[in-house]
Design a binder for these strands. Structure first.
Lengths: 209, 209
DNA sequence: TGCAAAATACCCCATACGGGCTATTGCACA
DNA sequence: TGTGCAATAGCCCGTATGGGGTATTTTGCA
């Protein structure tokens, strides 16, 4: 399954960086880099011929950005692994990249030897991440530090995410429907929402339950 | 902030493995391992004296398991980093561990030199993961492969997750409220749910939007 | 060119839901 | 010892929501 030579493509608008990366990769044993693009538009047009194993993708690009680019390219080449290679480390772009289909996320400060190791790793079923990036991803699963809900409210909210209604919740918790309503009203007030749908979204996105 | 010597604690029930880990770590320059426990109960009781920088935590333990153990210990020591060290690589336990507060996740097959590197990495703001584990986490963000929803249904579902009601959605999409209802009915049927709350939970958990 | 799916639109009807109130009990902390 | 919060419980009321239908137009693919 794994080719001897890993076929790498690059999408990067800055000529100098692109050239440098191309040389580093193409001159390293076990790697080949014959397809480089300076924007997503050209990559989308001709990358089907390249059939790369791995694509190194910048985020800030003229025209279609790297995140939108991955959505399009990953769709065409589901077996290709995409590694973001960028200076941007804000949570927003990290999670947008992963949601678009990126499998790795490296900062441009990554030294060449680590970059090559990352390309190998992603082909071997890993998911190379710069340390600070990996930490942000792990933290995104951690329980929320400031959770305004009481234990009972968490209990009720959990059941709301399971789609239970007033009657079911009051049955299972052995309390009256009016009390369930009281808890839900308090949850809404604390989370600044006014419907079950908003409440469960807030609960999941902020790791409240 | 960073101590010269990293103070490591271990929670592991198998005597042999625990002893081996203790020796590997304690005999390595830059590391200290003076606090080892064979279950979470003993760790909870006396770990406050240890004040470890890093805890290596097994999952399968007699009594309180490693996941529940982290919930309790992380609460008491929020600045301590917890690394799961386990043979288990099922998605369930991986995400449960992260949600409990784990920052790293290593398989027991990890060679000593990599284990030590991981302990250093977690203290330097990283989040060490065995390659296959990291991949599973990255994949959890990827768009769902089999998404039964049409583009319009995705659009409507996205707005449901934003807490919009029939009227707002029909206004913004320039379609009648009846059409919005028709889309929502189709969404419910395809996702096997029967309420907004369930639909938005399914949408988020299965990366449908 | 024709079929299937998608997107649009409408109807009836019961009820689960959300907003606005008030009230009691028990516990903890000051 | 009282102030505050959590948890419990009740009431009224309007409406947004969900289940059951049917029908038309547009779009995309074979």
């Amino acid at each position: 399954m794994t080719e001897d030579i890993i076929n790498v493509a690059i999408v990067e608008d800055e000529d100098e960086i692109r050239g440098l990366l191309e040389q580093i990769i193409d001159r390293s044993p076990g790697f080949s880099c014959k397809h480089v693009y300076k924007d997503c538009e050209s990559a989308i047009e001709s990358i089907k011929d390249a059939r790369p194993d791995v694509v190194l993708m910048d985020i800030q690009l003229p025209g279609i950005n790297g995140i939108e680019g991955i959505k399009i390219l990953k769709d065409q080449m589901p077996d290709t692994d995409f590694i973001m290679l960028t200076i941007r480390d804000e949570e927003g772009v990290i999670f947008q990249s992963l949601c678009a289909g990126a499998t790795g996320y490296l900062l441009k400060e990554t030294p060449p030897v680590k970059l090559l190791a990352a390309i190998r790793e992603v082909r071997e079923g890993g998911s190379p991440m710069s340390p600070g990036i990996a930490r942000k991803i792990a933290m995104s699963f951690h329980p929320s530090a400031e959770n305004p809900l009481t234990p009972r409210e968490k209990e009720v909210l959990t059941r709301l995410t399971d789609g239970e209604n007033y009657a079911t919740i009051s049955d299972k918790l052995f309390i009256s429907g009016n009390t369930v309503r009281a808890h839900i009203k308090n949850i809404y007030r604390k989370l600044h929402v006014s419907s079950r749908a908003e409440a469960v979204v807030a609960a999941i996105k902020k790791n409240l339950i």
